[in-house]
């Protein structure tokens, strides 16, 4: 019955479905991926949220328990410490080398060194470059990725410290976002990528960063639009 929809209408219907929350599983993950990597699609989702907004006048109020505010206050107070712990835990989980901290240079780009995954010995390593950035003068990330060793080095700049932590995602072409874990607000980090994740670091894949609640394990799907993104380009 949807046969008569044009591609534009199809896209808009998908945006409406995501805004309304009708999707689940893979379909939801795919739509979230699209809203992360495609600002025009994200704008369609926002437009549907705005269209439906008057319904927000109909919710019945309910009083939360007093413990909720106390928990919020605690989380605000603990947030910075939690974040460091979360990063360190994640890096251990990845059998990471080391987490370095320090000030970051101003000029930043996302630089990846990759080579074709299946060949065990690199004959001609490829350099891949992508800028992970936002429209405005927002966050930027510089990374270097060596496919031979699986070592990813990050330089992180421009995230405002707060309750949410930047989470790095790799989005394969036509696939769902896969979390690479949360990173710091600023500074440098090194991690050894586990083999399954190495397969995703290919030409044309998108790297994106969303702000997510602090978590000791990678989130299954992003909960909000990307604050910065860029494609992996091999050169």
């Amino acid at each position: 019955m949807d046969d008569h929809l044009t591609p534009d209408q199809e896209r808009d219907a998908l945006a409406a479905e995501l805004a309304l929350g009708l999707l689940e599983g893979q379909a939801r993950a795919d739509a979230l991926r699209q809203s992360l990597s495609d600002p025009a699609f994200a704008a369609l989702v926002a437009a549907w949220e705005a269209k439906l907004a008057p319904l927000h006048g109909e919710w019945a109020d309910a009083e939360p328990g007093a413990a909720v505010w106390n928990a919020i206050e605690r989380r605000l107070a603990d947030a910075p410490a939690d974040k460091v712990t979360a990063i360190e835990t994640r890096l251990r989980r990845w059998r990471a080398g080391a987490l370095l901290s320090g000030a970051v240079a101003a000029a930043l780009a996302f630089v990846l060194i990759t080579r074709p995954v299946p060949s065990p010995v690199p004959t001609s390593p490829q350099l891949a470059v992508a800028r992970i950035e936002s429209d405005a003068a927002g966050p930027l990330v510089l990374a270097r990725y060596n496919q031979t060793s699986g070592l990813m080095q990050l330089r992180i700049h421009g995230f405002e410290p707060g309750a949410l932590a930047p989470e790095l995602w790799v989005i394969p072409e036509g696939g769902a976002p896969v979390s690479l874990g949360q990173i710091g607000h600023a500074g440098e980090a090194e991690m050894t990528m586990p083999p399954p994740h190495r397969l995703l670091m290919t030409e044309g894949a998108t790297l994106a960063i969303t702000m997510e609640p602090v978590s000791k394990t990678p989130h299954p799907a992003p909960s909000s639009a990307a604050v910065a993104s860029g494609k992996i380009i091999t050169i």
Partner: peptide, 20 residues
Amino acid sequence: RASAEDVLQTVYIKVWERAG
């Protein structure tokens, strides 16, 4: 209620982060 209160906490943390 229990899950709704957990979600509510997260909501205000997001508000804190994104209000700017």
